[in-house]
């Protein structure tokens, strides 16, 4: 039986955004691992100078160079794949750009000594963005001997609040450089980003503010003028399992669980405790309180889930991993993304 298509078959550039604190880098890394699953080669790219990928994969800080950071596990039918990583920074990207288009590498290197490259990317904020998205577009389209170097590129992009500005750079850059040569570079980048080759995924957790930002971000991208970006999926991170079936959940949240019944059950399990007035055990009352907290959290999370459903995008849920994110946890998240069809 041949494998079915994944939800993003054919997409070569996955842009992953999300509010700070939602685990954007973790999800981007898990997605890269998942995409690399079938013997593929995937580039995971960060653009904010945070060295988040190096921290995640527990390796030394990444240079401006593509390095292999992980091997995706193989299956009985497929060999494992490779995840490469790149920490892109605007300065190196500018030097590379100057070299590629103007053969100016030496001049550019001399200029960095004066901090001038930093200055140049500072006076034109859109330039910074176009250099970084340009690097992603270049890696996406790069071919050696007629074959793509990477099967997919995953970009750990800036947070949701800045993503539209980050990706929709052409208007800002053209505002600054109306006729400049960077304009044509920006236009080339836009052709990749606004094509079906690119999808923008949103990472969130089931809390009010990140969900609001996700919905706002999606609405913003939808509102872009013609030839808009392809919206990807919503990756809901750190999801806790629902502790109880619906009826009981409501009861528990409202504090109307029968603590007497709970007392009896605890007694049956051999946990006896001092009784409080009313014949219930103090322990049963405490556990009921704790359960009520969980139930209220679960109901609140459900409310956020319903709000996300309004965005009408595929939703992937990733479990909360209590002991911190290590490589094993990344594999687990990658597997979960695969099972849900994201990769």
């Amino acid at each position: 039986m041949s494998a079915r298509d994944t939800d993003w078959e054919g997409v070569r550039l996955h842009v992953v955004t999300g509010k700070g604190g939602t685990g954007k880098t973790t999800v981007a890394a898990a997605l890269a691992l998942a995409l690399a699953g079938r013997g593929r080669k995937v580039l995971l790219m960060e653009v904010e100078g945070r060295q988040g990928i190096a921290q995640l994969f527990d390796c030394p800080p990444l240079p401006y160079d593509e390095r292999r950071v992980a091997v995706a596990p193989g299956t009985t039918h497929h060999a494992g794949g490779d995840v490469y990583a790149l920490a892109a920074d605007p300065e190196s990207a500018l030097i590379e750009y100057l070299e590629m288009f103007y053969n100016l590498r030496h001049a550019a290197r001399a200029l960095t000594r004066f901090g001038i490259v930093d200055f140049a990317t500072t006076i034109a904020p859109g330039l910074r963005d176009v250099l970084l998205t340009g690097k992603a577009a270049e890696a996406t389209r790069r071919k050696v001997n007629g074959e793509f170097t990477y099967d997919a590129v995953v970009m750990d992009a800036p947070p949701t609040g800045r993503i539209s500005r980050f990706l929709n750079v052409s208007s800002e850059v053209s505002g600054l450089a109306r006729v400049g040569p960077i304009r044509s570079h920006a236009d080339t980048v836009q052709r990749v980003i606004r094509s079906p080759l690119t999808a923008v995924h949103f990472v969130t957790v089931l809390e009010e503010m990140p969900v609001q930002e996700t919905l706002d971000g999606i609405a913003e991208l939808r509102g872009l003028p013609s030839g808009g970006l392809q919206l990807g999926g919503i990756m809901v991170n750190m999801v806790r399992p629902v502790p109880l079936p619906g009826d009981d959940l409501g009861k528990a949240a409202g504090g109307s669980l029968d603590a007497g019944e709970l007392s009896l059950a605890l007694k049956a399990a051999g946990i006896d405790d001092e009784a409080v007035p009313g014949g219930r055990s103090a322990l049963a009352v405490s556990l009921a309180t704790e359960l009520a907290g969980y139930a209220r959290e679960a109901l609140a999370a459900d409310g956020q889930r319903r709000r996300l459903a309004g965005a009408a995008r595929p939703v992937y849920e990733l479990p909360r991993i209590p002991d911190g994110i290590d490589l094993a946890a990344l594999y687990r998240l990658a597997e979960s993304l695969r099972e849900q069809g994201a990769a």
Partner: peptide, 18 residues
């Protein structure tokens, strides 16, 4: 001397308008 190169590079990348 460095500055001429600098403005030259900026003009190349951004255009004279910026």
């Amino acid at each position: 001397a460095g500055f001429g190169v600098f403005t030259g590079v900026l003009t190349k990348v951004l255009g004279a308008q910026v």
